[in-house]
Simulated assay, not measured.
Amino acid sequence: MAPKSTDWVCVPFSDAIKLDKLDSHTYRVKLDKNYCIGAVPNGGYVGSCMLAAASAYLSEINQPDALTAHFEYPARTSSGPAVITIEDVKLGRSLLSTLHITLWQGDLKSQKPWITPSVSRRAALAYATFTNLRTFSGMSMPTGYEASPAAALPEPLPDFEALKTSAGDAAWEIAKLPASSGLLNSLRNWHFYLPRGDPQTPGTLDMWIRATSGERITQAALPYIVDSFPFNMHAYLAAPELRELFLAPPSRKRTSKSASDDKKEDRDEEGQEEARASLWFPTVVMNLEVKMALPEEGVEWLAVRVTSKQIKDGRFDLEVQVRDAEGEIIALSHHVALILSMERNTAKRTSSDKSSL
């Protein structure tokens, strides 16, 4: 049975990734419960915290921007304090630097070494390459992809003002969390706007996003963006015949039926929502490549396209593309994820719990 809903407070992303510098290579962050899926902070949010620490560290040599990052999540994270440690792999004074980043939780200390060796758990790991995207230069040329239909933004473009004031326009509508959505606090930090009717490309989810807090989206949020999806994402990725099963609420498929038939259809819809809310989609591996820097002041809107090639045996892949309102590619991402019961997410931890699964 899906967990019941919990209190959620709209915490600005900039506050949720605030760091305290402990020493030259160590930072402390408090993982915010309002960025959790169940009892576990969203993996992309955790990644954003890790890259924020790396960015602060490399700002001293003017390389504040992540170019690539590879994340692994060997243990379940939890809301509350965490320590982020940074190991220099290669410091390139002129162009690129590579770091090994570890996020630790459990038995943390108030002084060096900040963690308890052999007791504190490595909850998330990353290798990241940093640079300065605003000064990076070199040869550029168009590719065949840029002229292909796949490179075009989904049509029609939204009426952004209508999306903000009326939760939709003729082609796009805001994704609403059902009452049975439970402890999916992280989803509440974004407004996801999905196409009305069938997707233009089967198995592809196109959406526009903006922050619920109203703050503009900055570079620091990219790991969180590529790991944030609407409640019913699975229905858009499914084969067309399955999508009809997942996304056919009475309001869209109304025919001449008796009241009892309508009630049955309503119960079926609720059952689909309950079934979805009982599932957890933990990220095992996430790769991020940043193509260009967002403006320093951030942007209000981003277009996100999500595809999956196979969902099988409780495992699935995701490819994520992030673009701005002009269609410029901002970031690409690839995930390996699992489909598990939410009970695995919310199970009580023990002192020896080192596994996310």
Rank of each mutant, 00 (worst) to 15 (best):
T350K: 08
R267D: 09
L279Q: 15
E60Q: 15
R93L: 13
A238F: 06
P178S: 09
S5H: 06
L245P: 02
L51A: 02
G271R: 13
V299P: 03
I37G: 11
A152S: 15
D198I: 03
V226E: 03
F13K: 10
V306E: 08
R243G: 05
C36K: 02
A325Y: 00
G327R: 09
V29M: 08
S120A: 05
P149N: 04
F130N: 05
V29A: 14
E87Y: 04
R267S: 06
H100V: 05
L91Q: 12
K112D: 13
P81T: 03
S356I: 11
P142M: 03
V9Y: 06
A259R: 10
E326Q: 13
E319R: 11
K30D: 07
L184T: 14
Q310S: 12
Q105L: 01
A293C: 05
D313A: 12
D206Q: 08
V11R: 14
D15C: 03
D32K: 02
A331W: 06
K354N: 08
N132P: 04
K309P: 05
S333C: 13
D353H: 10
V89I: 15
Y193H: 14
P41C: 11
L294M: 09
S97K: 11
S110R: 13
D15H: 13
V226K: 01
L99S: 05
T6G: 08
S351T: 09
R134M: 01
S333H: 01
Y57W: 11
A66T: 15
I217Y: 00
A53M: 05
W8A: 04
S356L: 08
T218H: 05
A347C: 04
G182C: 12
M292I: 00
L58D: 06
F160P: 02
S278Q: 13
Y224T: 04
L318G: 04
P142K: 10
S351W: 03
F316P: 01
I339E: 05
I225N: 03
L19W: 10
Q105M: 03
W8E: 05
G298Q: 01
I339M: 11
T116M: 10
S140N: 05
E296C: 00
A16E: 05
L31H: 07
N185Q: 14
T116N: 13
V40A: 11
T129L: 01
E72D: 10
S308V: 07
A293D: 05
W172I: 09
G327S: 07
Q272H: 13
L288A: 02
E241F: 11
G144W: 02
L302G: 09
G203M: 07
R323G: 00
M50Q: 07
A152G: 01
Q63Y: 06
L247Q: 11
A16N: 09
V46D: 01
L67R: 11
A221I: 09
A150T: 04
E269D: 13
A39G: 02
D261G: 00
A175H: 15
D262F: 14
D313L: 13
A171Q: 04
L205I: 07
L91P: 01
P250W: 09
T131Q: 02
E297V: 02
L95G: 00
A235F: 01
V89R: 15
T98E: 14
P240Y: 12
S308G: 09
L99H: 07
F316S: 03
K348T: 08
P3A: 01
P249D: 06
E155K: 15
